[in-house]
Design a protein around this nucleic acid. Sequence first.
DNA 1: GGAAGATAGTATCATTCGAAACCAATAGGG
DNA 2: CCCTATTGGTTTCGAATGATACTATCTTCC
Lengths: 150, 150
Amino acid sequence: MSETGLILDRFIPYRLSVTSNIVSDVISTAYEALFGLSIPEWRVIAVVAEQDGITQQAICTVTRMDKVTVSRATLALVDRGLIDRAPNSADRRSRLLALTDAGRRLYADVSPKAIEFEARIFSSFPADELDRFMTMLRAIEDRALEVGTL
Amino acid sequence: MSETGLILDRFIPYRLSVTSNIVSDVISTAYEALFGLSIPEWRVIAVVAEQDGITQQAICTVTRMDKVTVSRATLALVDRGLIDRAPNSADRRSRLLALTDAGRRLYADVSPKAIEFEARIFSSFPADELDRFMTMLRAIEDRALEVGTL
DNA sequence: GGAAGATAGTATCATTCGAAACCAATAGGG
DNA sequence: CCCTATTGGTTTCGAATGATACTATCTTCC
């Protein structure tokens, strides 16, 4: 289909970036349209839903998002009354995040939709191929991190 | 290693985005440091090197970059004397791009380095796995485009 | 052949993103 | 205990990005 220059076309970092951008775009426009959530916001919600009382710092390490990004997403969610921040007696610099009732309701709404969107793109592939693909993604991630810090 | 929340962790769009970002980051800092090239600039150079006399529009379709991005990258490269724009007698709105001598020299320099960087990350994987991975990326790309426009 | 769209490319603007500066609080030696 | 170094989080700022508007040319169709 795409009659590209040879080098770029088979250049893995390039292909990875193109594919990732297209997928992100599809997903993010869907989230935005349906729930008014940006991708960082959706990620924060997902993590907090699964680990009640997590701190922003922990969200950063777990999602590899920048702390600025997490901060902004969290503030927006607090503003919208979807997340609560309780004082953390163990360390008063941070707060413990939790979903509010509204947040839980939204999450119950969003989460199946997310799965559904994913399915819309990926369900046409056999499960074992997807598994191999994911394994590969993780391996590449680890390797790139290694190379980046050498 | 990363003890993430279940949903996000196995969510393909998320994994794809994380991996792509890390790889892009490694690659782009290397380009920037070695040649003062941004990723869009490197892409434009690569395409023009392989297809002399291409137009910006053609670069857009071939690389899926935005036309604004291509315009900026091209202007920067023209400024640096790496690319020439000859009038296009067939359509005077566009110009025909070609590498200058300096551009060719730079490309001769950059291109093996690019391959080398790629190798540094990916050569640890068996070739057939990489092939499957690339095939999968393309298939996902096609599928996502389909879904996006449905 | 000329008016009405489409298209190549550039300029403008608003948004996003992350690096670095910053503030508050904690940790850890002396 | 302080004094310094670190860390959690926010603010600020500059760079990159992409949607939109704009200009010049081309195409179409009457």
